[in-house]
Amino acid sequence: MAHAILTTKHIRQMGHNNKTTQAPRRKNFDTGSDITIISEHTFDTLNIKETEAVDRSARSATGELPLTSQFTCSVSFQGEEKSLTCRVSSIYDLNVMGLDWIDAFNLKDQPINSVCNQVHNFQGSVDKSAIKPRSAQLKLSFSDVFDSKMGLCNKTKAVLQTKPNVQPVFRPKRSVAYAMQQLVETELQRLQDCEIISPLTYSDWADPLLS
């Protein structure tokens, strides 16, 4: 089972023993990863002189995850600064904020929109006095669109077709940190209650997206 929230936030990283090299870096906020990783491409932009040998191995859903080195850095978030470890991978553009950093700043129990950057695409003035009445009218006219229930498309039916004589692929479930197991079980039960997924006792095919 896997539970991953994919979004982005800015984190300030500083070179080891060199606090003049402060630079914001964008990472994926991923509760499915136990460790924080950046790509060699990102690492090369940080001007960090000292690294250490990697003290652990890592695996992804597709197999071994290559880690080339690790370093200690000062990480600043909302005025709080901590000294944390970051691993480096040869995979291009792999920049993940894992559970080690998430736990360090106690971010697991916070709403995701309180952690992420706010994105504002609209430019220009808005007549705010006209928004609420119009919004209420739309919610009343299209109540089925705005309710909290799961929608259902009944206009068409999706069919997955495989090539002739194809060999089934069975991917085992992803490991989940003990602290996250109850959250994952709760979410899977919610999806089952909404009839989005259903349990099976056996299958030739499996993918760790949900299992």
Rank of each mutant, 00 (worst) to 15 (best):
His3Phe: 15
His3Met: 12
Ile5Phe: 12
Leu6Met: 07
Thr7His: 10
Thr8Trp: 06
Lys9Leu: 15
Lys9Gln: 13
Gly15Asp: 11
Asn17Asp: 14
Asn17Ile: 13
Thr20Asp: 09
Thr21Ala: 08
Pro24His: 11
Arg25Lys: 12
Arg26Pro: 01
Phe29Asn: 01
Asp34Gln: 06
Ile38Tyr: 06
Ser39Gly: 08
Thr42Glu: 07
Phe43Ile: 11
Asp44Lys: 04
Thr45Ile: 09
Glu50Gln: 07
Ser57Ala: 00
Ser57Trp: 02
Gly63Met: 02
Leu67Val: 04
Thr68His: 00
Thr68Trp: 01
Leu84Arg: 06
Leu84Asn: 02
Thr85Leu: 08
Ser89Thr: 14
Ile91Tyr: 01
Asn95Ser: 05
Leu99Asp: 11
Leu99Val: 14
Asp100Gln: 08
Asp100Val: 11
Trp101Cys: 09
Trp101Asp: 09
Ala104Gln: 04
Leu107Tyr: 10
Gln110Leu: 15
Gln118Glu: 09
Phe122Trp: 09
Asp127Ser: 07
Ala130His: 06
Ala130Ser: 10
Pro133Asn: 04
Arg134Thr: 15
Ala136Arg: 14
Lys139Asp: 13
Lys139Gly: 09
Ser143Gly: 07
Asp144Lys: 12
Val145Gln: 04
Met150Tyr: 15
Cys153Glu: 13
Lys157Gln: 15
Thr162Val: 15
Pro164Thr: 03
Gln167Tyr: 11
Val169Tyr: 06
Val169Ile: 15
Pro172Trp: 06
Lys173Leu: 10
Arg174Gln: 14
Arg174Trp: 05
Ala177Cys: 08
Tyr178Cys: 03
Ala179Cys: 06
Leu183Cys: 09
Val184Trp: 01
Glu185Gly: 01
Glu187Cys: 06
Glu187Thr: 11
Leu188Asp: 02
Leu191Glu: 10
Asp193Ser: 04
Asp193Glu: 10
Cys194Pro: 00
Ser198Tyr: 15
Thr201Glu: 06
Thr201Gln: 07
Asp204Lys: 08
Asp207Tyr: 13
Leu210Ala: 03
Ser211Asn: 12
